[in-house]
Structures are given as structure tokens and as C-alpha cells.
Design a protein around this nucleic acid. Structure first.
Length: 353
DNA sequence: TAGACGTGGCA
DNA sequence: TTGCCAAGTCT
């Protein structure tokens, strides 16, 4: 029989002991006793928003190698940062990353603020990220509440309310656990526990240092938490993507600075904010041409809708399609253009990749 | 406040 | 194949 730890402080101590034995080795994580680089912590935290560790690893290494300091990142053109971010998704993160680097480099002397409140004022830094940077980079006793932590707390205390409404209670429960020392380790321990033990499906409660205190586990219903809100259904939309070739070049346009795929390089296309029926497609072509629809359409699922896009291809010899604000990109360099995944799919369908 | 905002992996 | 999920933020 396991004795309950009983107090939040003892729970935290048990969690830290577990962390010392089971912590993950991650590229952005300082070794035991080492000081974390605030720039590296910030960069990794932005990339990790709604994105898996496995996906982030390569991008993190590439960014850090190319832009080793916040000053270097701030000095880079936004287009370069967006191209390097291509494929990671949620491109507002990259725009905010660049804006934030600029502010830190030019207004804050290249140093990230240490307080949670000051961090919170930076572009792209919300409640979670501010707490995470304050704790991990500066060892401040801040709560870093992400999806992992919400799940752990929802189970530990069998919180019945849907997550959105349970946030204040979750925060209260985390804050009463915050240890006086090792704040950064505590924040990462809670997230590691959620990522490796207290998983969404089939949690490994037998390996959990908090199991003795976990209300949901003791009731045999750990997997039933957290309670999920109702999911909005995902509409299906149709559209078209236009791949215009001129010799060994293809026409690329710059997406509007905000909104879906904002700021990214892309082939001209129909608007994606609504379903566009086939009869209307050619009205959105960048120029009149002998457009040929490829037999296989491209399927792509965004967060809030699913797109089926027909890819049209055509060739031209005219130097500049009328009324288009595009540019001619060399086909041999297309993989370096930083195309978002939907556009990479279109390029592949057209035989360009 | 609820919706906008990407992508890839897994059951 | 479909749905769910992963270190959220902005409006």
C-alpha cells in the first residue's frame, strides 16, 4: 500500500525526485545544474506551442545554427524566418517570433525580461509561455500551465468542469504545489510527467509518482479526464491552386501578411475562407492560359476546415502575367522557397518536387 | 468568448 | 478512413 503524500509540497518533492530519474534529454534543455540560455528557451517554447517534440527538434537545431543569438534573428529578413519556419505550421508564431526578437534586440538591449509579467507583454508570449520562460530560464516560481499540466491536474483532482472553465482551478492547484527552489525543474517535471506517464490515452499510472494522491486514478477513471468540451465540426471546402510555369521557373506569390498561411510564399489560389465551386475556379487564375486540371486533387486538413484543392497547370512565355504580383522562382530551388505544406503538396502533384 | 490558426502521427 | 491530439496565442 502506497502512503499518500498528502500535502502539495510533498507531492512536488516526489515529482522532482521522479524527474531526476526520468527526465527527457532534449536539445533545448540544460543539463542538471546548468543554466539555460533564455534565447534558446524562448525559441523552443514558441516552436513547441501545439507542436510535438519530434517535429520541433530539427527546426530548433536549424534555427539555432543559423541564428545563434536574438540579435542575429532580429537582423534577419522576415521572409527568411518564414521560409525557415515553413512546414511547422501556425505561421503567426514565426511572425511574432521575428517581431519579438526585434523588440528584445532593439528595445531591451538583447536581454529577455525576467519577470512573468514583462515576458507576457512580448509578441507571441501568452500565459503559458511567459510562465515557462520565467521558470525555466530564470528559475522564477511561476506556473507554466500547458495541455500536459492541465491533464495531470484534472486527473489528480478529478476536475469535472471542461478545461476552458477549469483554468482558474487548475492554476490554483499548480500554484499551491510550486516549490521554493528548482522552479524550472518543477515546471519541466510536470510537463514530462504529462508527456510520458500521464498521457491522454492509456496513462501509465503504475509509474506515476503522484498516483497515491490521484483522485481519478483511485476511482479507476484516470483516462476519463480531462473532460473535453464539444468539438466544432470541420467543414469541407473546395478550391484550386494554380501552378504557372515559364521555362524552368514557376510563379509564386506572397500571401497577405495575416490570416491563413499569412506572409508565406505560395502558388496563386482561390480563397480558402469559403467553399469555391468548380465553375468559379478559373476566375481566380493569375492570368488567362491553357489551364489543365490535374486528375488527382490535393487534400489538406487545416485546424478548422478540410480542403480539397484541384491543381491547375499551365505554361506561358509572357514575361509577367498581367495583374499578378508574383515572382518567378527557379524550379531547381523550389524546395528552398519555404512553401507551406499545402503548397508543397501542389508542387509535388504537378511534378515539380 | 469562441473561433482562427498548421501539421504529422497514431489508433 | 476518420478523429484525436501536441509545451497556445490572438482577436
Amino acid at each position: 500500500m502506497i502512503e499518500p503524500f498528502q500535502t502539495p509540497r510533498k507531492r512536488a518533492a516526489a515529482l522532482l525526485a521522479w524527474y531526476d530519474a526520468h527526465r527527457r534529454d532534449l536539445p533545448w534543455r540544460a543539463g542538471p545544474g546548468e543554466r539555460a540560455d533564455p534565447y534558446a528557451v524562448w525559441l523552443s517554447e514558441i516552436m513547441l506551442q501545439q507542436t510535438t517534440v519530434a517535429t520541433v527538434r530539427g527546426y530548433y537545431e536549424a534555427f539555432l545554427a543559423r541564428w545563434p543569438t536574438v540579435e542575429a534573428l532580429a537582423a534577419a529578413p522576415l521572409e527568411d524566418v518564414l521560409a525557415a519556419w515553413a512546414g511547422l505550421g501556425y505561421y503567426a508564431r514565426a511572425r511574432n517570433l521575428h517581431a519579438c526578437a526585434g523588440r528584445v534586440a532593439r528595445e531591451l538591449g538583447g536581454r529577455f525580461p525576467q519577470s512573468e509579467a514583462a515576458l507576457r507583454g512580448l509578441p507571441g508570449v501568452g500565459p503559458y509561455t511567459a510562465g515557462a520562460i520565467a521558470a525555466i530560464a530564470f528559475d522564477a516560481p511561476s506556473a507554466a500551465i500547458d495541455g500536459n499540466v492541465e491533464r495531470v491536474m484534472a486527473r489528480l483532482h478529478a476536475i469535472a468542469a471542461p478545461l476552458r472553465q477549469a483554468k482558474p482551478l487548475v492554476r490554483e492547484k499548480v500554484e499551491e504545489m510550486l516549490p521554493a527552489a528548482r522552479a524550472g525543474d518543477f515546471a519541466q517535471a510536470l510537463m514530462d510527467l504529462g508527456a510520458t506517464v500521464c498521457t491522454p490515452r492509456a496513462p501509465n499510472c503504475g509509474a506515476c509518482p503522484l498516483a497515491a494522491d490521484c483522485v481519478a486514478y483511485r476511482c479507476g477513471v484516470a483516462e476519463a479526464y480531462p473532460i473535453k468540451g464539444k468539438k466544432a465540426e470541420k467543414p469541407k471546402r473546395r478550391g484550386a491552386i494554380f501552378v504557372l510555369q515559364r521555362g524552368d521557373f514557376a510563379l509564386l506569390a506572397r500571401r497577405p501578411p495575416k490570416g491563413l498561411l499569412g506572409g508565406m510564399s505560395a502558388f496563386p489560389a482561390t480563397p480558402f475562407d469559403r467553399d469555391v465551386p468548380p465553375d468559379d475556379w478559373l476566375g481566380f487564375a493569375p492570368c488567362p492560359a491553357a489551364w489543365r486540371a490535374l486528375p488527382e486533387s490535393v487534400a489538406h486538413v487545416f485546424t478548422h476546415f478540410a480542403l480539397s484543392a484541384t491543381v491547375f497547370v499551365a505554361r506561358t512565355t509572357s514575361p509577367r502575367p498581367l495583374g499578378s504580383a508574383g515572382r518567378w522562382a527557379a524550379l531547381s530551388d523550389l524546395d528552398k522557397e519555404g512553401l507551406p505544406t499545402l503548397m508543397r503538396k501542389a508542387a509535388a502533384a504537378a511534378g515539380l518536387l
